[in-house]
Amino acid sequence: MPVIATHDLRKHYGEVKAVDGIDLSISEGEIFGLLGPNGAGKTTTLHMLATLQRPTSGSAVVAGFDTVKQPLKVRQRVGMVFQEPTLDSTLTGRENLDLHGRLYGVKGKERPGRIAELLKLVDLEGRADDFVKHYSGGMKRRLEIARGIMHHPEILFLDEPTLGLDPQTREHIWAYIEKMVAEQHTTIILTTHYMDEADRLCDRIGIIDHGKIIALDTPENLCASLGGDVVKLRMANPTTKPFEAMKFVKAAEIKGNEVLLTVEDSSSHLAEILQRSDGVQHVELHTPTLNDVFLKFTGREMREESGEGGFLADYQASQRGH
């Protein structure tokens, strides 16, 4: 029984097809990543799943309820961490969590204990009573993630959880997310345009481009779908002859003075390849990344740009659309 199931989910703003027919099935306890360039439709998809935007057509069942017919039931069962900070900076960290608990109907008796538990989870116990305006970017992110699971949601949506954070802080946030899944058994749906993030955190990845899912599998399988590693040999007389008999060489082509070999399990076969080839001047070994997967399906590199417009921009776009 999937916790999220969508059927031909679409969101159109006039002529613009922000989300163009998405079918997803996500199981309990999964960390699922929507990977794609900015403007691919990741945030819009997430907002539709969290009932913040109404689909143009199609349907989504989240935590057992239809997002359009019973939005409040869905909201009670999901947590949302937006792309931009949505903390109340005039309140302390503890007060932010308390406010969230009240809004989500966490009982008064349970709140203080739950708040203490969450502050411990994200290592903010020492700063709990400081005003959020004095927090660093990483601390705010941690507090928001803690807030997102305050009401024991079955599913947590994370929209670009480490956007704009420095590498060290990103590492920390990832560790907190993993800890949270281990300790709280939350299903996580995250969007990202960082390959490393998707690779590190996600059980499965849906690569999304122009509002469509173009590939969906585990990171390992996605990379393996490219057929293997690429060994690049620069040779005086480039030829593919010696490699044709090798079973582990899946493909061979000549590009200028280089020979490109697609090789299964390249590390154990590299020695044999080098033995059989004459006049090798330079060797390069390239293990496929999600970027190569993206490149294969779209013919483009993923752009690494700053954040999307998010909720308000979507709202403004939807206003213009109507």
Partner: peptide
């Protein structure tokens, strides 16, 4: 946003 996303 946080308030508008709540089940309220």
């Amino acid at each position: 946003k946080e308030v508008l996303a709540a089940p309220v």
